[in-house]
Design a binder for these strands. Sequence first.
DNA 1: TAATAATCGAGACGGTACGTCACGTCTTGGA
DNA 2: TCCAAGACGTGACGTACCGTCTCGATTATTA
Lengths: 217, 217, 217, 217
Amino acid sequence: MSNAEAAESNPAPRPRAGRPRSVESRRAIIQSAMHILQNDGYAALNIEAIAAKAGVSKQTIYRWWSSAAFIVLEALIADMPSQEGLVPDTGSIRGDLQELVRPTVRALSQRRGAVYKALIAEAQADPRFAEAFRAQLMSAHREIVRAVVARAQLRGEVPFEVDGDLAADLVYGPILYRLLNGHATLDETFAFDLIDAVVSGLRYRDAGVKRAAEAAE
Amino acid sequence: MSNAEAAESNPAPRPRAGRPRSVESRRAIIQSAMHILQNDGYAALNIEAIAAKAGVSKQTIYRWWSSAAFIVLEALIADMPSQEGLVPDTGSIRGDLQELVRPTVRALSQRRGAVYKALIAEAQADPRFAEAFRAQLMSAHREIVRAVVARAQLRGEVPFEVDGDLAADLVYGPILYRLLNGHATLDETFAFDLIDAVVSGLRYRDAGVKRAAEAAE
Amino acid sequence: MSNAEAAESNPAPRPRAGRPRSVESRRAIIQSAMHILQNDGYAALNIEAIAAKAGVSKQTIYRWWSSAAFIVLEALIADMPSQEGLVPDTGSIRGDLQELVRPTVRALSQRRGAVYKALIAEAQADPRFAEAFRAQLMSAHREIVRAVVARAQLRGEVPFEVDGDLAADLVYGPILYRLLNGHATLDETFAFDLIDAVVSGLRYRDAGVKRAAEAAE
Amino acid sequence: MSNAEAAESNPAPRPRAGRPRSVESRRAIIQSAMHILQNDGYAALNIEAIAAKAGVSKQTIYRWWSSAAFIVLEALIADMPSQEGLVPDTGSIRGDLQELVRPTVRALSQRRGAVYKALIAEAQADPRFAEAFRAQLMSAHREIVRAVVARAQLRGEVPFEVDGDLAADLVYGPILYRLLNGHATLDETFAFDLIDAVVSGLRYRDAGVKRAAEAAE
DNA sequence: TAATAATCGAGACGGTACGTCACGTCTTGGA
DNA sequence: TCCAAGACGTGACGTACCGTCTCGATTATTA
């Protein structure tokens, strides 16, 4: 969560001394950043360009964000519909995951994909951003999968031994892989086949484990 | 494939006029690049630093490579053991994939991981490098999985409907995800669980498809 | 003259409405400025540093001074011993000027020298400060020389044609020159030789003028 | 002496490896600097402005000069007529010094004055520039006075005890003082009176010294 | 006793210039 | 034709101060 967010959600909004942060500047910076990102690509997204476009001093940007990636992350979070926090509930794990993955794949195959690619690339070079990206964005997505799996376990669809974290890896891993490596398209067919395989893998995992144990004897 | 590779694999290495390419410079450049990469990280890997360390002019580097990433890619390929091209053959798809994934995961959890992270990040910003990375490195890994799956299909372990490409996505996707997102470690347990789930997913995929078809009615 | 001085010397200090100026802040600002000047040099003397050291807001500084140089000037004036205003009276112009120049040279060869150098440099870039520096500091020094010369003229030591202003130039010019150019030290010997030459120059000036007039014929 | 000067005067101009320094860039930088200085004043003379006007990169400027002041100094030296190195020879010390000081005073009262003021101010903040300014500019002026005095001593006009360095201080000190302090104009009258007093001071100095020695008894 | 007025600290703001870094290109002499 | 050396224009970096502008709080005079 960014400083600004923290301040806003502060239960005791003690009016600190000094001139308060300009909300117009904040908005202009985030909007300018997203505008440049959409129009000219992440390579063109630098602090000087954002500052110039937003009519803001570089110092003001650096005061609140440590790099352009953090600005984009903040925009992404602000843009994230709270309904996305709602876990789909179709009655089956297969349906839930389909419901979850299909829009994700669709979004990533469009403009959103380039943004995520850039942020993930950025995270490889900046550990501080990696941590923020993981905590503020990725973990929310993973949490949904965990919740879906937990519900399926209560329903008896999936054995209790199945780890929700592994399930999240199985779901998002291949999507990320295609997104970043670009060896194939992110389309509906892929989403269907991916979920199909993941669900089968989770359901029949006990059989596999048993067989592996037998092989180890 | 880089210019250098193209020149080397040229079946008719017609000796062009002029001074031939210096093999010492080529070696020094690649070694210096890898040395900087290991010691100071990818962020410190720039052409000027490589040139200085290798005792080479920048021009010489630019003549043969278009960016530092290509140098690293060339080093990686040269370093890639030809035996890695061999498809493991343990008699079961589970064993084959275990044999394949365990050393991969081990390598990525060590120094090799940082190198891959950096190159994948670079690929997001440079489409030309992305293409080279995919063609020269990733495709080889994917091909092995496809071969393993094909053999398992002949053995009757896995239905023929299973797509080898999807299998590769299922295997490498989660690995890449953990590598890049860093939410969990790349260890033996993960490798085992991953393969376990993937194999189950591939084997029982028909059942899942059938059930999905039924649900669609 | 600064606003502060004007306010203090205001014969009718009609108490304006509102919170009065904080004497602690004024003192802290001046002391902090001199402390920074002595320890880190004039280059490090900026408003932000003074404000931070004095525990004062920048606004408060800007309200009363237009630049750091004015703060230093105020400190210098406050520090200036009123006895320095006393014209030395040894009975001879030579003795008077020696009495005047020796302590000046000694002070300038120590810490005071750096302060003067900085202020004179500042005056070259800021005409408003130049005016203040001249009026509040330099003119006092020059006035003493003029008084000494006038007394010597009454005594008959120096012809009445001699201009007191030129005498001040002759006395302080070389001192300033050595201070700013740094080609030689400001020491007792220099002070003695300087005054010796100046006094001779002033005393026998008529001879020179007469000879010059003859040459002009 | 700047690097460039050193290189030019190098008796063995060994053609060093690498691209040679661009003479056009050097010329453009110096001209642009002087142009800005004349038109907008020293306060507006910053590296970015010079680079922009000269169509040159900042790096190129920083490669050869450490500040704008050094550029101006180089321009001043290049502009310095070699005939200025010639010592005036009118047959009398009075005439020689008049010949020397009159054009100096005239130049300083015009555009040249602002340049000198700025450079002397700069020298107070930058010891490295102070050294260069002293060695490359001031020392030449002082040397002329020393030569004039030495000739006058051979002629018997001035006693041998007179120190040429003190003479230089006496001549240039008051000029500098008026230039920097601005309490009076630099005009012909001042030049005449100054030299008149200095010559008298130097000629009759023995009398003064004798009198001082008597006083010390 | 309130209203008015000026000050104070804190600190965010737009702005300018800094000096550095790395880029990719160009221009030498020499191999 | 390649090589090392190294200078060049370009563009962005992150920092330092500038002088100004809100804030809430404080402290005086004035109504």
